[in-house]
């Protein structure tokens, strides 16, 4: 089977699945997110891209 591409629809589906899994995790939601991050950075192909994502996700004062 060929791999699915990112479309607005598939992004939407994955968003919903993460939201559901995050709710399921309950008071372990931080652990869930950290595990998800670790798995995802392995998919990134380079440490530079992981560092870039960390920088992008870092909260600015206004957003905290």
């Amino acid at each position: 089977m060929s791999e699915q591409q990112w479309t607005d629809v598939t992004r939407d589906e994955i968003y919903t699945e993460i939201s559901g899994a995050l709710t399921e995790a309950g008071d372990k939601s931080e652990l869930f997110l950290s595990r998800l991050c670790l798995l995802l950075i392995e998919e990134l192909g380079s440490p530079q891209r992981a560092r870039q994502a960390i920088a992008n996700a870092t909260l600015e004062a206004a957003q905290s």
Binding site: Y15, S19, G20, A21, L22, A25, S29
Partner: peptide, 10 residues
């Protein structure tokens, strides 16, 4: 958002 997970993601 109907639950905490949906709110965090949103």
């Amino acid at each position: 958002p109907p639950s905490s997970g949906f709110r965090l993601m949103r």
